[in-house]
Design a protein around this nucleic acid. Structure first.
Lengths: 357, 357
DNA sequence: TATGCTGTCTGAAACGATTTAAAGAAGGCG
DNA sequence: CGCCTTCTTTAAATCGTTTCAGACAGCATA
């Protein structure tokens, strides 16, 4: 490949001048500038990002660390980040941790040696991100935490309003007349899971509902967990008339379990998921869900990172995105309830998509 | 961060010696070696990948270019590639093209300046990969083409046996007694689409079935396309009793259209998709599909790339992975057919998962 | 005691850019 | 015309590695 030296020769100028033309770091008179640009175009020259990065102490790479791209929630996040990165001339180095803290550390260590401008992380379980990314901040790289916030994190972050989302969904269920509402949470060491649970509880408190012991089940964020915990719930007395599943995969597992127990959703039991993945539209019945935009999450994170690169002194930003309750076929008023139950009709009236304020 | 110079000072040796210890490029006597390693451990030193890459003319990065990570088939491919890359000390730079040839070229140009060791590409529509990646090969980077092969591609590649997969599925349908079988193909400028169509036709020829004009519909690889083309098919006379959808998203759209027309799958019409995505398990009815492992595709591609890095002279390898017909609820024998129809029983006997030979 | 041979280790030159200090040119003014 | 100022341009240092030619030590051989 052509290098700067060749461009300099071709244009009959010094290396420095070529650099100045390319980066606009100094005034260069038009005739010279043109000669340089001509040489650049003639050769198709592109500066080595490695050499540039080495000299500048930072590259146009953004490192992105996520749990697992196979989890259908994350592709959106990645795509959002990639789009923002790309349109600013950055590229994304993608790493999966499988929620394994050790793997996360390996990635963190290795990636730093590529001198990325920024680091976008969805922390793994038990991640001490503050300590682990210390060296990044020392090296002047922007670090943005996404989706889940580890304890004591004080840097830039983007999350969604988990508590509000869960509250909305639960409130909707109580509004339909449900009094026996169970919740299958994600792993409770994650802030996102905790917050969803908090929102759930708050909505029940408001509706003056006492939750039977065992109506809150902690699960992993996958179908298998949702399936297993739903089996448990369905055996309880009294059986819940509605379940809030803290993500869509859990809801999917719940649907399976419900079907397997020869129960019917939503007639016997209502179900609301969380995330609003595409798959919620193709199940039978279609799953209601608290929608959040993974794409927005990723895009905002990348933007925060780039902003921080541009101005390392600006105040910390902790973005909280809105959720949106999307009611589809998987919810209905409970059967066999007193006169306080909203009629089918009133439910439909109340059903339009709601947005967190 | 600590650099090699500091390590050299700490260990009381020259820069060269440190490098030799780290890379095993020359014999170093034990006491010196130990002093170097001690210094490395004491400081937590890690070599700069940028400096190393600049000097070696190649980094431990693999560039990966795919159409769109939001398409549920691709996360598997990416994850497969990342796993193989990671376990060999490489990282993945991920780029989405949206099947836009211009975007593909931009990525190709930009990525080269990071001197990746390899390039894994799922070519965009109308990609002239051979020409576009010429500079990579000149720079000694391995280029592996995945999933779709552009015309005239002669380098390493990994694909699946598309024709065989489509043939299996179609053959299965004819075996059930279907004579009116339609096919919704992907965009026919893609080799993968063409091959699937070929497999479909071959199976019909074998069964001596004449396809009515219009039974082959070209679509985009998404739900909307599948929906629209199915609407067209369902209005045809005679109406097909089975549809082979050339990917699962198309099949999903088909399912929607079938339901909307108040028809029932599989009683009125059988449906087989292609890819075997997770979502085929959660539809109602569960979708039958020609399964292919995206993960294997990606993993094999990364392995091919790394092998090629290790030995640039070895013969070209064009891997073709097997598909596997996974019959679920969306297929049944046609109604109202003569005595040649296999009984329900015999279908079950024929139903176990088949593997392409 | 030279000489040659191994086997280790070192020093310096790359790699391809950016950046800074200083040189050089151009123009203004007395 | 000479001096000063303001713009342009250049040369050289630098980033952190790898690598290659050569230095050096130790030992065996003649």
């Amino acid at each position: 490949m052509a290098n700067m030296k060749k461009i300099a020769e071709l244009a009959g100028v010094s290396l420095g001048t070529v650099s100045h033309v390319l980066n606009g770091t100094a005034r260069v008179r038009e005739p010279l500038r043109k000669r340089v640009m001509d040489a650049v175009h003639a050769t198709g020259y592109q500066p080595s990002q490695l050499a540039r990065g080495l000299r500048r102490d930072k590259t146009n790479l953004l490192a992105m660390i996520i749990p697992d791209i196979l989890n259908p929630f994350f592709p959106g996040v990645v795509r959002g980040a990639e789009d923002v990165a790309f349109s600013n001339g950055y590229r994304l180095v993608l790493c999966n941790t499988d929620n394994d803290h050790g793997k996360e550390i390996m990635h963190l260590n290795a990636l730093r040696t590529y001198l990325p401008s920024g680091l976008i992380v969805i922390p793994s379980d038990f991640s001490d991100l503050t300590a682990q990314t210390e060296s990044y901040r020392r090296a002047g790289a922007a670090v943005v935490c996404v989706d889940r916030i580890p304890r004591h994190w004080t840097g830039d972050s983007v999350t969604i309003n988990n508590a509000e989302g869960a509250h909305q969904a639960t409130h909707y269920l109580t509004g339909l007349g449900h009094r026996q509402i169970a919740c299958i949470t994600g792993p409770l060491h994650l802030t996102s899971s905790q917050d969803r649970l908090k929102g759930f509880r708050r909505a029940l408190r408001t509706a003056k509902i006492e939750t039977p012991h065992g109506y809150e089940q902690e699960s992993t964020f996958d179908r298998a967990g949702g399936y297993a915990k739903t089996k448990v719930l369905l055996r309880m007395v009294p059986r819940p008339t509605a379940i809030l599943a803290c993500n869509d995969l859990i809801a999917l597992g719940a649907l399976l379990a419900i079907r397997e127990e020869k129960l019917h959703c939503p007639d016997d039991i209502s179900l609301i998921g969380f995330d609003g993945l595409d798959l919620t539209e193709t199940t039978t019945p279609q799953l209601s869900s608290v929608y959040q935009s993974g794409y927005q999450l990723g895009a905002a994170a990348a933007q925060l990172a780039l902003d921080r690169v541009a101005d390392s002194a600006s105040p910390v930003r902790q973005l909280v995105l809105k959720t949106e309750l999307r009611i589809r076929e998987s919810v209905a008023p409970p059967k066999n309830v007193g006169s306080t139950v909203p009629l089918k009709k009133s439910r439909v009236a109340a059903a339009p998509v709601l947005t967190a304020q």
